[in-house]
Structure formats: structure tokens, C-alpha cells
């Protein structure tokens, strides 16, 4: 589904290469995890895939279901099913969470040539999804992420994911800033979305998230490359020995 080949990326305003040839394939129905030390390029990968400005692709390709996504605007990527759960969800004062969700859901439907959701249908859907994530009516009414705790922000990301039903979900350090209970809640939300037709790319520093969201494949990223790929046991190995061993092994 998501197919990344030899992806090279540098910062737009600086002569600094961040990704130095990433190869990665995420199949529908699978959960892939990327682990790696700080500064290895994990978050950059997620931003480049979702279309954030400030990066320049110098080589390689990325396709979703065969469509080249690197030339697309962020909203076009969203419309064909790409979703990034942000590490730091953005606060938008003045825009109600509900308005935000409805605008996004309907914009994607419109882009795909589908009819917009009626206000009543939308409301019913949001309430249902919000309930399982323990998001109350007040959180839906408040401006997007404004005054939300770390855990609330992450749950709100998962709510958006649940509402938009993307084909390819990228979770960028969704576990950061979460306590044990919140992590469980968020993980349950993600697991509920696991589906034959949907792929996941879970970026994390720590193994503990992967106890809740069980990956099929684990990649280790270091210095802008995937240096090792394995099964879930690879995450446990990292947890035990750190990244240093792996790096020297590859070198």
C-alpha cells in the first residue's frame, strides 16, 4: 500500500541531509513500527509523507496505492487516505473541535466525489466514536486542542483518525506525554481501527507502546536509513540493549 523507495530528503533552507535512502513497504492490514534514536529521521519521514513544507526530496519515491504522493498537496494526500497523528497536535483558538471535524470529514468526501454527511449523521457518528475514546461533549465543543492535556490531545488525534477513516495511518510518537491509562485508551482506539484494508506506521522511541499496539514488522532507523528490519522481537531487543549495539552491528 505505502511504498517508499530510496527516499532522500534534505531541509529546504539548510544543506542538511536528513533521510539518506529510506526503503519501506507497508502492506494493507499490517502494522509496521519504526524505532530509532533521537535525530535518526523518524519524524521527518512522517512529515515528508504528509506534505509539510520545509523539506526537499532530492531522490527516491513514495506512493500510496501506486499514486505518487510526493507531488501532492497535503489535502490531496489526506483525500486519498493518508493520515498523520501528530506528535505535537496544534492548538487552533477560535475553531471549535466539532466544526474542525465536520469541515475535515466533508472536505475529504467532497474531494472524493462523495456526498457530504448531514449534520445529524455527523453528530451521531462523532458521539459514538468520542464515547469509546472517553472524549466528552465539552472537549468536542472547545476550540481544537486549546487547553487540552497531553493525553486529551492524543485522544483527539485518534478521534480524528476514527472519523476520517484513512487507509494509511502514521502515528508519530503518539505515546509521548501519555501516562499508562491514557496509553491504554489511545492504543485501544488504534487497535479498534486495525483492519484488512488499512496500514499503520507507528513511530516510537520505546517498546512500551508496542505492548499495546502489536506490530507485525519492526524497523530500526538510524542516521536517515532503515538499518534493520525484523519481527516484534526486534523491539524487545532494542529495549534490552539500546540502539548502540545495532548501530555497531550494521557498521
Amino acid at each position: 500500500m505505502l511504498d517508499i523507495k530510496n527516499l532522500h530528503v534534505k531541509l529546504e533552507d539548510e544543506d542538511k541531509q536528513i533521510l539518506k535512502g529510506v526503503d519501506l513497504k507497508v502492506e494493507a492490514g499490517k502494522v509496521h513500527a519504526i524505532m530509532g534514536p533521537n535525530g535518526s529521521g523518524k519524524s521527518t519521514l512522517s512529515y515528508v509523507l504528509s506534505g509539510r513544507a520545509g523539506y526537499e526530496v532530492t531522490d527516491g519515491t513514495a506512493t500510496l496505492d501506486g499514486e505518487d504522493i510526493l507531488g501532492m498537496e497535503p489535502e490531496e494526500r489526506a483525500a486519498i487516505g493518508m493520515f498523520l497523528a501528530f506528535q505535537y497536535p496544534v492548538e487552533i483558538p477560535g475553531v471549535g473541535n466539532m466544526t474542525f471535524l465536520r469541515t475535515a470529514a466533508n472536505a475529504q468526501r467532497k474531494a472524493r466525489g462523495e456526498p457530504e454527511l448531514s449534520a445529524a449523521d455527523f453528530l451521531k457518528l462523532v458521539r459514538e466514536k468520542a464515547k469509546t475514546l472517553q472524549i466528552d461533549a465539552d472537549m468536542l465543543k472547545r476550540p481544537v486542542n486549546v487547553g487540552f492535556s497531553g493525553g486529551e490531545k492524543k485522544r483527539n488525534e485518534i478521534l480524528q483518525m476514527a472519523m476520517l477513516e484513512p487507509r494509511m495511518c502514521i502515528l508519530d510518537e503518539t505515546d509521548s506525554g501519555l501516562d499508562v491509562d491514557a496509553m491504554k485508551l489511545v492504543s485501544d482506539g488504534v487497535n479498534a481501527l486495525r483492519d484488512e484494508g488499512r496500514g499503520f506506521l507507528v513511530i516510537t522511541h520505546y517498546q512500551r507502546l508496542l505492548d499495546h499496539i502489536k506490530p507485525d514488522v519492526v524497523h530500526i532507523m538510524s542516521d536517515g536509513r532503515i538499518i534493520k528490519t525484523g519481527g516484534p522481537e526486534l523491539a524487545l531487543e532494542v529495549e534490552k540493549n539500546g540502539y548502540a549495539d545495532l548501530k555497531s552491528e550494521v557498521a
Partner: peptide
């Protein structure tokens, strides 16, 4: 940042 966040959710620029 807010603009990108909205666009990443499918809202046109």
C-alpha cells in the same frame, strides 16, 4: 502550523 494541521486533515488550503 495550524494551516498545515488543517490541510493534513483534508481541508483545502
Amino acid at each position: 502550523e495550524a494551516l498545515f494541521y488543517l490541510r493534513s486533515r483534508g481541508v483545502p488550503d
